[in-house]
Design a protein around this nucleic acid. Structure first.
Lengths: 144, 144
DNA sequence: CTCGACATTGACGTGAAGGTAGAGTCTTGG
DNA sequence: CCAAGACTCTACCTTCACGTCAATGTCGAG
């Protein structure tokens, strides 16, 4: 990928990627990356003078992080909130008492959401395997 | 459920349920059940004179079947096609040669879709568990 | 400087599902 | 038998998370 030819990709090393490359590395569509920005989830750490979004490796990591979280059916808004909570909870000494309470409460609620999400996924996986089994069996039955 | 009081539910035993009861048993919303009908997935086996949809136990089973299949991201249309293929392949002796070929080909493609869907679910589940772990850990770190 | 690949914003489309309204239907208690 | 009121009908609107299209602009290699 990123073939030689003509391209508008920042010439390697800068560690700053245009949206296309960033999306590719995060295994997301360009549109989705922009949607995540609109939703306040991942903001490119820079822009060119012309207005092109520039993503750092760290930005890409965050994109990946978001993609990975999509399994438990959270809305983009909730997803952003959760990311924020996790970040805030990593430096609890900077939080005021009231904030700690809030963060803990919120995280607690997300833990429950995650529990249910995981159950959902487990069930979906079991169902999918069963369906797969049926398809395979029918293929064998009908033969070729 | 189906509390005594006033209700418009067919009085038990008829084995024919109004949409509300059918939806409840299939663990779907009434709205979703109607959407499945519009998509050609599950058609109630009868209607009252007044136009109320009536679902048999078999219809409910089919609703459940559809719900269970939703894990592998198939569109409602594909889902309907797959259900049809499975049904057709159960009586292969009724199929003409050309049809058999078609059914087998189609099922084969769905088997691949299912493979990928299962991989996706497995990954999503692993990611969800990891996220859950992070949340729990942050909760422990921040303490209460 | 030019060319072509890539990006920008904005608007509109889509697919699945929920919401709502207004009118009609059903079962049941009385 | 009949009214009450829970439930359902159709039709249309809204939301969410993107997909797609169009018109225009930017980037970087040669």
């Amino acid at each position: 990928m990123s073939p030689e030819g003509h391209a508008a990709s920042p010439s390697e090393q800068g560690a700053l990627l245009h949206i296309g490359d960033a999306a590719a590395r995060a295994e997301l569509s360009v549109r989705t990356v922009r949607a995540y920005e609109e939703a306040g989830l991942v903001r490119p750490s820079a822009r060119t003078n012309g207005g092109f979004r520039l993503y750092s490796e760290h930005d890409v990591d965050r994109l990946v992080e978001v993609r990975r979280m999509k399994g438990l059916a959270l809305s983009l808004g909730e997803l952003g909130e959760l990311l924020g909570l996790l970040k805030r909870s990593e430096a609890p000494e900077l939080l005021q008492q009231a904030e700690v309470t809030f963060v803990v409460d919120s995280l607690y609620r997300y833990r429950e959401r995650a529990d249910r999400g995981i159950e959902r996924l487990e069930q979906a996986l079991a169902d999918a395997r069963e369906l797969h089994r049926r398809v395979v069996q029918q293929l064998a039955t009908v033969e070729r």
